[in-house]
Amino acid sequence: MSDSPDEKIIICRCEDVTRADILKAIREGGFTDLESLRHHLNIGRGPCQGKTCIPLVIRILRQETGASMEEIGLPTARPPVRPIPLGILNVNEGGGE
């Protein structure tokens, strides 16, 4: 473990992404919009689908890049927006698989 405080600042709880990870991706990886940063680090793709982390990530991006909200963008909100059991999708309809 490094001593950098940023490594102990958890931005995305579901996927364990730290502030240090995000700063590195922006500064060294050139991921300067929300969607690509999200693909790179898997931010906001856990059970909560970004409900806690996205506002924090947006704040870091704005500080680091000075980008506008329009430039930063918003990730696509896909179903399910809440954790659900996949088994419920296995409904017997139309006799299909």
Partner: peptide
């Protein structure tokens, strides 16, 4: 316990939004 860093986790929002309590 969190998936990557094995950190202990508890409640956060307590209204079903944040998934910290799963």
């Amino acid at each position: 316990y969190s998936p990557g860093l094995d950190r202990p986790r508890g409640l956060f929002c307590a209204i079903g939004k944040c998934a910290s309590c799963v």
